[in-house]
Design a protein around this nucleic acid. Sequence first.
DNA 1: CCCCAGGGACATT
DNA 2: AATGTCCATGGG
Length: 217
Amino acid sequence: MLSLVQLYQLLLDFYGYQGWWPVDEGYHTAKGTDPRDEIIIGAVLTQNTAWRNVEKALENLKKYGELSLEFIRQVSTKELEELIRPSGFYRLKAQRLKHVAEFFNPTDVVEKVSREGLLKVKGIGKETADAILLYAGGRLSFVIDAYTKRLFKRLYGLDVGYDDLKSYVEENIPKDLTIYKEFHALIDEHAKAYCKSTPRCGGCFLKNFCLSAVPSS
DNA sequence: CCCCAGGGACATT
DNA sequence: AATGTCCATGGG
């Protein structure tokens, strides 16, 4: 069967470099805000939400406030709700952002916080914790999401819980930050494009490797 | 009209 | 441990 490294290479060849949340590429330096703050905030806002809606909220924060955890601490909950409204679940997420911003106040550095610590924060579950650790903290913590579960179940017949799947992936790919970040992003791209709720196996370049590919459709 | 999106907390069985 | 419900805006 297709190894995870082979799968990664095929996805990368097909979709190209995704570059989610590039901390080291300087796109953030315009206003001097910490890119890690933006990633942490984005990780909460994108919970069960399309990224295009999150972008609207991030733009509002940039335009009418500041895309930083310090601003999240300062602003009133009511105003924060209005700024992030386009991202959906806005009252819930305003509370979560407040909790997260408080967790990192003032000296907790994302490069050093523990996964267990993050998981104690109201509003941070396993996926959000791993996304923060990986993309903001530069830590080798692979992110599992609904897309990953769906793809691995169909492709490999692998149907296990979050931590088991996370461990499985981590044990079968190189311990490389770029690969961790890109593999997760590429899996999401493929799940959105082909391995959807109702899969489009017809045009899928992985169908010959897939346990559950439908011959036509 | 429908379904879904880069989930998580909490209640129920 | 597994499943159900709620949270909410914006697109397809």
